[in-house]
């Protein structure tokens, strides 16, 4: 096949880059811009937007319109946003508290076992989140694995109502995203020079102070990277609140999805999405800074 690309390096580059870059630009960057524009337009009650300019969607974030058109402060949406942030922060802290010791354990195993354990951590990450959340209904739900034996023993006579609340949502978030905490921490622990740890032991340092003064500071980039990943994904999580929260306790993404489906208020959904992107943007900014620093060290 006689096939030659143009010899001009610029044209060659464009030939290779254009399909991927243009696809993502056209079907992701432009759609986000369109959504930002939609947030400043009036809502069409049948879904979509009407022509014109309106700041109603952004006002709706904070206020409700009274019958006489005066604005009353209405914190209901801010509460949902606040709940999303609190749940995401808690999920991050819990995944860190569980993930760090597990990563620490894995890194100390012989090479073969280490590989196996890492693979076991990765598998759930690549399987369907919907199914993983659903599986928890079988455990936490009415007549689930937890309630049934307690019933049989006569310890409870009514449902414990473990499902459909903040507890179940938080559990779902931790369960969904814990691999993303363990993997970066493991990666930085793997690079750790264990001679330092041994030296500290030889100098009679206590185990707790070795971890606090040597291990944690040296694998801080991994801890920060894992924390930001878990925070960002938890904040935008849709499945845990809708499956385990039963749609009663909303998080930001459920509120957004609701605006584009039943509520048919696309501009408000757009404003909420912009807010989510802003929060995620702040998180990613720190992530990029940390990973740049990490490259500098390596």
């Amino acid at each position: 096949m006689a096939f030659n690309l143009p010899s001009n390096p610029l044209a060659r580059r464009w030939f290779g880059l254009a399909p991927a870059v243009i696809t993502i630009f056209a079907f992701m960057v432009i759609p986000i811009m369109i959504l930002a524009v939609f947030s400043f337009m009036p809502a069409d009650p049948y879904g979509g937007v009407d022509k014109g300019f309106s700041t109603e969607a952004w006002i709706q974030l904070f206020f409700e319109r009274d019958l006489d058109d005066s604005l009353i402060f209405e914190p209901v949406y801010l509460q949902i946003i606040f709940r999303s942030i609190v749940l995401a922060v808690l999920a991050t802290m819990i995944t860190l508290a569980i993930g760090f010791p597990v990563a620490w354990y894995i890194v100390q195993q012989p090479a073969k076992k280490r590989e196996l354990l890492l693979f076991l951590v990765t598998i759930p990450f690549w399987t369907n989140l919907l199914i993983r959340a659903y599986a928890w209904i079988l455990i936490l739900g009415k007549n689930g694995m937890i309630e049934k034996p307690l019933y049989a023993l006569g310890l409870i006579d009514d449902s414990l109502e473990l499902m459909y609340g903040n507890l179940a949502i938080g559990l779902g978030l931790v369960y969904s995203y814990i691999p993303l905490m363990i993997l970066p921490i493991y990666a930085s622990l793997e690079k750790l020079d264990f001679n330092l740890v041994e030296a500290a032991h030889d100098l009679y340092a206590k185990r707790s102070s070795v971890i606090r003064k040597i291990v944690i500071p040296l694998c801080l980039p991994g801890i920060i990277a894992g924390s930001i990943l878990v925070f960002v994904l938890s904040l935008g999580d849709f499945i845990s609140p809708s499956i385990l929260g039963g749609g009663k306790k909303m998080m930001l993404s459920n509120l957004i999805q609701f605006q584009f489906s039943s509520a048919r208020n696309w501009p408000f959904g757009g404003a909420l999405t912009m807010l989510l992107l802003l929060l995620v943007g702040i998180g990613s900014f720190f992530y990029v800074r940390v990973s740049k620093k990490r490259e500098g060290i390596a």
Binding site: I24, L35, V232, L252, G270, V280
Partner: peptide, 23 residues
Amino acid sequence: IISLPLLVPEIATAVATLSFFAA
């Protein structure tokens, strides 16, 4: 640009794409 889809939360991509197709 190529890594962007990894950073944007799925729900945001979902509703933005929906708005784009509607537009």
